[in-house]
Design a protein around this nucleic acid. Structure first.
Lengths: 333, 333
DNA sequence: TCAGCTTAGTGAATCGCTAAACTACTTTTT
DNA sequence: AAAAAGTAGTTTAGCGATTCACTAAGCTGA
């Protein structure tokens, strides 16, 4: 592999000049530039990214930490991030945190140790304080799907409360008055916000909230099925059920089928996230769209703008959910 | 950030000694080692990974190129790769190739330019020749789901033909004698192999292969629906349909429902891949399991063994598919 | 014509680490 | 007791770029 030395020698100029034509950050005459460029071409020169990083103290790498790489959710996010970063010559280093505080923290430290210029974090378990400290230490990062007051400028969020509101409002509009809710783990911020939105929508419709009609699941398919059983077990009547994510909604569907409950005739179901296979389910799932692709893209743009000083990017930190109406919800007869 | 100089100064030893205790690659007395270690702790020293890479000519990074980061398939693979690599202190840099030869090639070059020590490639469009050249140039990489004779030691494959065989054999065992097939794009190696397996199974059962009962799809859900229509349009009878992947099987299911065709009563369906939501579909999908997680893990192990000289790893390059029988297939009445 | 400015290009230090070559001791071998 | 071998540590030359401080022209205008 050719080095900058060989290029400078072949072109008959100094190292510094070669570096300048590469970085385009100082005036070089066209003639000299031409010489350098053709020397580079002749040698098939490729700058050594590692050496550049060491000298410039910029690794051009962005660490991306997600809870799980598999699952229908993060693929879209990674995809958006990779595309956006890549178009500017940056790259993504991945790590997963498995929704566990120690792992998340270890991963963050790993990525920092890897000299990432910035981080994109989807973390759920690590404490607010840790992240505030991180920001104070000068680590540059953006947080996806988590809002922390003190570092609000680092946060890119979906208005989860609004999403929860939309879901419930939708079934209310369809004349359902008895609405059950399967929530995510209550320690997760997004689960709380979604549930809040649900309560708010009930309140705005002057319907009393009944905590017995809420089941706390864990965002897994299985807990949707369990939730339906539990809800049915209360003996309370309900004609619609809102699930805090699509996996659990799918669990409800499966269990409903086993119980010979017709959907949407006897029970309307609304999900949240609009994951890829929401529209493959039967019946297709009415759900709240989570614009994760756009949010991933925005996260990358934030980094590009703030860490790499790219200008001309329009930034935005709160995204608005949108209801995607399909066949799993229906006007109450 | 503390550097090795400050550590050596505080510990009262030379740079080299500090480097030695870090790398553990030369004898250092326990007493000296202790001094160095405590100096490190006191300063909160973290070695600069970039400088290490430059000096050692080893970036500890592995480039991973997949066709798409989203979709149900690659998440599992990435997950396995990340986990495996991470446990050895290596990291993954991601890129996507979008099944397009130019993009794939550009991505490979990007990753090489990024000084990855090795690559894990899931490429479909780039030519055999290009990959053979790459190997000849000394780039170390493994190929997932693609077999090239000349560089067979770089390949980690599923026995796709066997998978196709299993799927067809299964419906044959269920007494179906007229079996339709929706294939993937014929230019893709895996699609060919799966179809071959199908033909072989028919042949072994002394059933004549009828090319009219084959529809070439594109692995997308949509083409499953289109395929069912086309197959039905031929006027030929068939009681089972094998799909070369689960997405297309899902498309067939959706369309069958629209046509009031009961599954599995009137039509048995078998998919391929066993993606996460195959078991969420209704009815749950009988499919051939693609052990992508294990294959991702193995790919990472290959790299660990061959590029990073880690010993004690059992390597394996061809994986065997397994039939996962669910509710979408049924004995012919 | 020459001080003063701009422009183009050079030299050398620097980034933080690794590792080969070397020195100074201590222990073993004969 | 001297040579050979082994152990612990140091010195120093890289790795391949960037960048600051500097020089040498070329141009301007009074």
């Amino acid at each position: 592999m050719a080095t900058i030395y060989q290029v400078s020698e072949l072109a008959g100029v100094s190292l510094a000049t070669v570096s300048r034509v590469m970085n385009n950050n100082a005036r070089v005459s066209d003639k000299t530039k031409e010489k350098v460029l053709s020397a580079m071409a002749e040698l098939g020169y490729q700058p050594n990214a590692i050496a550049q990083s060491l000298a410039s103290n910029c690794s051009n790498s962005v660490g991306v930490l997600v809870s799980e790489l598999h699952g229908p959710f993060f693929g879209d996010m990674m995809s958006a991030i990779e595309q956006t970063l890549r178009s500017e010559g940056k790259h993504a280093i991945i790590a997963s945190g498995h929704s566990n505080a120690d792992t998340e923290q270890a991963s963050i430290e790993f990525l920092i140790g890897r000299k990432c210029d910035a981080l994109i974090l989807h973390v759920e378990a690590v404490s607010d304080g840790y992240l505030i400290d991180l920001a104070a230490k000068g680590v540059s990062f953006v947080l996806i799907n988590r809002y922390i007051e003190q570092i609000s400028t680092h946060c890119i969020c979906l208005d989860n409360q609004q999403g929860g509101y939309l879901a419930t409002q939708h079934v209310l509009d369809l004349q359902h008055a008895q609405v059950a809710y399967i929530s995510g783990p209550s320690w997760k911020q997004d689960a709380q916000a979604r549930l809040n939105g649900h309560k708010l929508a009930l309140q705005d419709a002057d319907i009393a909230f009944d905590s017995e009609l809420v089941f706390e699941g864990d965002y897994q398919q299985q807990s949707g099925s369990a939730g339906l059983d539990a809800l049915l077990g209360t003996g309370k009547a309900f004609s619609a059920i809102i699930c805090a994510n699509d996996e659990m909604a799918s669990g409800v569907m499966t269990r409903a089928r086993e119980l010979n409950l017709d959907i949407p005739e006897q029970l309307s179901i609304v999900g949240f996230d609009n994951i890829i296979y929401a529209s493959y389910l039967y019946p297709t799932l009415t759900t709240v769209d989570y614009p994760i692709f756009q949010m991933g893209k925005m996260a990358a743009n934030y980094i590009l703008a703030k860490t790499y000083d790219k200008s001309g990017l329009v930034l935005r930190d709160v995204f608005v959910p949108k209801l995607e109406v399909r066949k799993s919800s229906k006007q109450l007869a």
